[in-house]
Amino acid sequence: MDNSTVVFFVPVIAFVLDYLLGDPLWFPHPVRFLGKMIESYEAWARSTKLSPKIMGGVAVLGFAIIIWGVVKLLVSIPFIGVLIALYLAYSGLALGCLLKDCHKVAKLLDDGNFENARAELAKLVSRDISELDENEMRKVLAETASENLNDAFVAPFFFLVVTGPAGMWVYKTVSTMDSMWGYKTEEYRDFGFFAAKTDDVLAFIPARITAMIMMGAGRILGLNWRAAWDNVLKDAAKTESPNAGWPMSSAAWLLGATMGGKAVYFGEAKEKPVLGPEGELWSSLKIKRLLRLICFSGLICAVLLYIYFSIVWML
């Protein structure tokens, strides 16, 4: 088997490894290293007293160019380049980790272990959940699980099959910047402006692919796909983000439960738009069905994008 044939199988091997292994704590994950680099840049950029918006833009462009070049160089190394490509492809996906973390929170809620559930859920979201009751925690879990199907899996896998590991890690870099800087607080409103906008652009197509695949998977699983089909476009337009509303509203209508409402970020209350049928709670059964939907949607996405990759490869 020659080198090009091995590269052909990198996306599917990466998907299997991600699903089976997730992100073990001992694993030297590139995002952790990337996060430290971004933190160091921010400290230096703020010390320069230059325009925060300009320095944030320089970071997005500079990091994207550097990451693209470094990854391209690494994967081109004879013999070990394929192993590096596989490592980067696997570590850039997070469906397995998402499902594992969400199942853990769901089980703690089912067992009535609300304080531990709250502690685990807090690791997955940026909002304040200290005052949430059981039903509200289930809703937050549903929101973050559905939104992250795109952010943690569909979008990076999309860029992996379309552009290779280099493009995937440019996306992951921008996404990491957005998760660290993309807040409309006084501290980050300007500094994170370009990171947030670039992330919106890069995730635009994957978010819509995610919603369509979720509806298709929902139909196969016997969920309310007609309600989703009739309402997703309307509900997705309600959200502040041009992308988050697509997978979230798909999940809300497919499972027949409400997302949105009051949320607290950094001590500030915010009223988020209501997605899905109003007043319907996220029961334990609906959460289980949602996680099954996310798992099945991820599998369908991987198959369809890999078919696309295979066709392009053969042209």
Rank of each mutant, 00 (worst) to 15 (best):
D2L: 13
D2V: 05
N3D: 04
N3A: 08
V6P: 06
F8T: 09
L17P: 02
L20C: 10
L21D: 07
F27C: 04
H29Y: 05
F33C: 15
L34Y: 08
L34V: 07
E39Y: 03
E39G: 03
A43M: 06
A45I: 04
R46F: 14
K49H: 04
L61I: 11
L61W: 15
A64R: 12
I66A: 13
W68M: 15
L74Q: 10
I77D: 13
G81Y: 05
I84S: 10
Y87I: 05
Y90E: 07
A94S: 15
A94K: 02
G96L: 03
C97M: 10
L98C: 12
D101C: 09
K104Q: 06
G112Q: 02
G112K: 03
G112C: 15
E115M: 09
N116C: 09
N116L: 11
A119F: 07
A119C: 13
S126R: 15
S126N: 07
S130M: 05
D133H: 12
N135W: 11
M137H: 03
V140H: 00
L141D: 02
L141R: 14
A142K: 01
T144Q: 02
A145F: 02
S146D: 02
L149Y: 04
L149D: 02
N150Y: 04
A152Y: 00
A152Q: 05
A155H: 11
F157T: 08
F159G: 01
L160H: 03
W169V: 12
V170D: 00
V174E: 00
T176N: 06
S179D: 10
M180D: 14
M180G: 14
W181L: 01
G182T: 01
K184H: 14
T185V: 07
E187N: 04
Y188P: 14
F191R: 06
A195K: 04
A196V: 10
D199S: 13
F204V: 09
I205N: 03
P206D: 04
P206K: 03
A207R: 03
A207M: 13
R208S: 05
M212D: 09
M214N: 12
G216S: 11
I220L: 05
L223H: 01
W225Q: 08
A227R: 12
A228D: 04
W229Y: 07
N231C: 08
L233G: 15
K234I: 12
D235C: 07
A236D: 01
A236M: 10
A237F: 11
K238N: 15
S241P: 15
P247L: 08
A252F: 03
L255Y: 03
G256A: 15
G256T: 02
A257F: 15
T258F: 08
F266P: 00
G267I: 10
E268M: 07
A269G: 13
A269H: 06
G276W: 02
E278Q: 14
E278N: 04
W282G: 01
K286L: 04
I287T: 05
L290E: 00
C295N: 08
F296I: 11
L299M: 08
I300D: 03
V303L: 14
L305H: 02
F309E: 10
S310V: 12
I311F: 05
I311P: 13
W313P: 06
W313D: 13
